[in-house]
Design a protein around this nucleic acid. Structure first.
Lengths: 342, 342
DNA sequence: GTTAGCACTCGTTGAGGATGAGTGCTAACG
DNA sequence: CGTTAGCACTCATCCTCAACGAGTGCTAAC
């Protein structure tokens, strides 16, 4: 358990280091005003805090910087969530006031604004379709042997895929299939679609349609999960470059490689639990960002967690500001989704 | 007009510099074997070439590097297009042999492979829809007052947009509108769609549908050009970081900022003429890449130029290799498109 | 318990010198 | 007359070394 004074000093060090990116010395803290002790006293406390693992020293004659444990303590116990700046409030208000008609757009837009307001990199995962249900299915022949399949979800998301038509199937038959599928599957959660093909829907098809086996195979192809890609919106990727910790090209490269590798990125960001989550340094599941912090917020629709918006920055991140923003944005999005589902 | 020996020496310098990224000295050229003159002679020629503007000297006691004009001459007159390496051929072959069903996929995949084979950054502009025609139009109500509009083009591309339904319009009326539009507009080039709304189609709508005015406004909204976004596929963005000329973080930042600003990027890459085009350094229309070279190839469908694939690297680019690859890829894509349109 | 004083550490900065790659020029050569 | 050897000169790079100063830990006094 830390004493009150230790907490005060730790707060001061973290705050200082966050804004300066330089190791913090005892003298500069003493001069700040909010810690009214002499440098010597503060030095003693700092030595204790280092022994407890909250601080680190780059080298003997340098000041202290917060360790991962130090940041964690700061985030869990010390950070105070103050109000947003007028500019931020205004920005968010106008943003959510806009007449936005597609869920993807909200997510993307939010992510862009977050990146701009914070100067970090934002990573937004578009809505996970499998938690939504089927609104409409369509199969349009393009040529003799290919057709484009279109799936519209209850959230208004449109997914499409071009597929080969089984040889010998007529346009009329395709239409019949589409009608049956729409009649039977509308309202079914996407995640269950494939399974349904083998129960009554399959029976129905076999009864009324020729080439049923091939048709089912084709439709399964359309609905196969791995093919349904998930949108990832990156924003403010270059913001990283303004941070002094990323002056080094090699370090950037590993991070950027991660950002470019969508599937891994989805895993890293998407495994967040509902709500707001702060992952500091090595708490992250990928070592490319072992000296970064990732703050994520999930968004939900109709009670289902659909996606995640994350902000990636150095461990020396402006936690107070970002956590605040995330809180606000998260709330606004929830409202928006509710209003939108009406 | 350059003498044969000058051309020989310029070629040697460009080749050397491309592979080493270091200023090239007279001695190293003399030792190469293919230029059988003493360093002193070569020095004289180099001085001449510099005076003519083909070479530059970073400082007095350094070797020479090619100037923009030097690269241009190299690309126009000296580069020899040799065959692709077996690995490259194999890679391309297997790629185009794959059963790819959507045009977008070909483009994206090609771009990825190019980035991998060359170690540069590839920028691919997805098919420009406005040169294709309407295959199918659909309007699906999502709730009482919003609907999702879906446009399927002759190339199988699906575009969708969520729009508000004018108050007081019933589902039946929407369907009627959709039917009229499909009957009248199928096969019409997308670029003409909006204009058509004001000729016979508009008349028709006014005749058979109530709220025609509002409906037309809504449909125009759907078809408004600026909203139809164009896909941009980036690949190998981190490859840039392995080039010594981009060790500097600031330089990278300006380039990356450009890559993130999609509309500008589309302008920079998309203004290429049909065929293969090399733009060196300041020949580029954006100063962020004034020390980069951009090699672009367009792809066509049915005689229409649909999009562009570009490779971005330092001016010290492996022109021979890249131009070759682009040639091949371009040809393969043309074949593919032809086979695909069947 | 707090603080002033002081010796000590160690990264940073800048000056000076050696190194060497490469040049331009001149004179000699075939 | 084109080509080449020789040589003085330039200039970026690298290394060393000393001065500097920010910051520490420890001890003794308040």
């Amino acid at each position: 358990m830390l004493t009150e004074r230790q907490r005060l000093i730790l707060t001061a060090i973290v705050d200082d280091y966050i804004s300066s990116a330089e190791p913090v010395g005892s003298r500069s803290i003493s001069k700040r005003g909010d810690v009214a002790f002499s440098p010597a006293t503060i030095r003693n406390e700092m030595a204790d805090l280092e022994e407890l693992g909250y601080l680190e020293q780059p080298h003997t004659s340098a000041g202290r910087i917060p360790s991962q444990k130090g940041y964690r303590y700061y985030v869990d116990h010390l950070v105070r969530l103050d109000d947003l700046s007028p500019e931020e409030v205004k920005r968010l208000k106008t943003m959510f006031a806009e007449k936005i008609t597609a869920m993807e757009q909200v997510v993307q837009h939010t992510s862009t604004v977050l990146a701009q307001l914070t100067n970090y990199t934002s990573i937004a995962l578009g809505p996970e379709m499998f938690n939504t249900s089927l609104r409409h299915f369509q199969l349009l022949p393009l040529s003799e042997d290919t057709a484009v399949a279109i799936i519209v979800t209850s959230t208004g998301h449109v997914e499409n895929k071009t597929v080969p038509i089984p040889p010998g199937v007529s346009a009329a038959e395709l239409e019949k299939v589409v009608n049956i599928l729409n009649a039977k599957l509308t309202g079914i959660p996407l995640i269950q679609l494939r399974a349904q093909l083998y129960t009554e829907v399959g029976q129905e098809l076999k009864k009324y349609v020729s080439h049923a086996q091939e048709m089912i195979a084709m439709i399964e192809n359309v609905m196969s999960g791995e093919e349904v890609h998930r949108e990832v919106y990156l924003s403010g990727t270059t913001n990283m470059l303004t941070q002094p910790e990323f002056k080094d090209v090699d370090r950037i490269k590993t991070i950027w490689d991660l950002l470019e590798e969508t599937p891994t990125l989805i895993k890293v960001v998407g495994e967040s639990p509902t709500g707001i989550q702060v992952r500091i340094g090595q708490e992250n599941s990928h070592e490319a960002i072992a000296n970064c912090s990732l703050i994520t917020a999930t968004y939900t629709y109709d009670g289902q967690t659909l996606g995640t918006i994350g902000l990636l920055g150095p461990t020396r991140m402006e936690y107070a500001k970002v956590m605040n923003l995330m809180n606000q944005v998260s709330g606004q999005m929830a409202l928006f989704m509710k209003r939108w589902s009406r």
